[in-house]
């Protein structure tokens, strides 16, 4: 899912215009997320008070509205990713996501892809043409869906997955990791991951191998990398998912910088 955040003055108007333009230009489904202190009442009628923590309304045609009190921005985007090709978020950003800044934004987002002094000055058409070039928001669920769509899926009795995440400390006395930042060799990293997937897919009983490594800044507990294997049986699924992540870590030009409470360093400088 291609995700774009808009922050600053009139973020909602700019996000709406962008979402409209993207929907007109591309075939994929578009979601908008309005972020703020109050939930838009269009979500679900207040109705009678209940003790339920989540409240949903669903029709036989699949139309639905919902409201609840348990989601972060990343949770919400993760849940949208399998079902939408585009998401435009108004009113907040996240350090990894491509962000448009209108007027001033404090703090300045980490991944600014466009800036304009006013809403009128944002070149909506130009941004919409670039949206497919931004780093996509890929989740484990997205990759599992893709694996299950394999033409060989009917011969598969196993999916094994690996998720790498930001470890806060390796042992109890370690300094806490505040965040990790990853950069990759654009183009070459994807070629090498594709080559590893091709190699592993040649194995008997292995039908699909999908991998994705996120780039940018990631906080404690956030997901970094996914490997998904669709296979005939669990033995080759487990073996291949392990070999997949090992080869990714050995062969793909991606570089990790760690910031702890006390220090900042590139991982290759610590032999880890």
């Amino acid at each position: 899912m291609q995700t774009l955040c808009v922050v600053g003055d009139d973020a909602s108007a700019v996000a709406d215009a962008l979402a409209t333009r993207i929907a007109e230009t591309y075939e994929g489904r578009v979601a908008t997320v309005d972020y703020g202190d109050a939930v838009d009442n269009v979500a679900v009628d207040e109705g009678d008070p209940t003790d339920a923590d989540g409240r949903f309304s669903l029709t036989s045609k699949g139309q639905w509205v919902g409201r609840g009190d348990d989601r972060s921005l990343v949770d919400l985007l993760d849940s949208l990713a399998p079902d939408y090709e585009y998401a435009v978020v108004a009113g907040t950003s996240h350090h990894r996501l491509p962000t448009v800044v209108v007027g001033d934004s404090d703090p300045e987002p980490a991944n600014v892809v466009a800036e304009a002094p006013t809403a009128d000055a944002v070149d909506i058409a130009a941004l919409a043409t670039r949206v497919d070039d931004f780093e996509p928001h890929v989740t484990l669920e997205t990759l599992i869906d893709r694996a299950e769509a394999s033409p060989l899926a009917e011969r598969s009795g196993a999916i094994a997955t690996f998720t790498g995440r930001v470890r806060i400390k390796d042992s109890p006395e370690d300094d806490r990791t505040e965040h990790l930042a990853f950069e990759k060799y654009e183009g070459v990293a994807d070629e090498r991951m594709a080559a590893i997937s091709d190699d592993l897919t040649d194995r008997e009983g292995v039908f699909e191998v999908l991998m994705h490594h996120r780039v940018g800044v990631m906080g404690p507990g956030e997901d970094i990398v996914f490997v998904v294997v669709l296979a005939g049986h669990r033995e080759e699924a487990f073996q291949t998912v392990e070999d997949g992540i090992n080869r990714l870590k050995d062969e793909v030009p991606i570089f990790k910088k760690e910031t702890t409470e006390a220090d900042e360093f590139w991982l290759h400088e610590r032999g880890g």
Partner: peptide, 10 residues
């Protein structure tokens, strides 16, 4: 041409 240290993804 590219020059880089040992890779450290994952």
């Amino acid at each position: 041409l590219a020059l880089f240290p040992p890779v450290s993804g994952g």
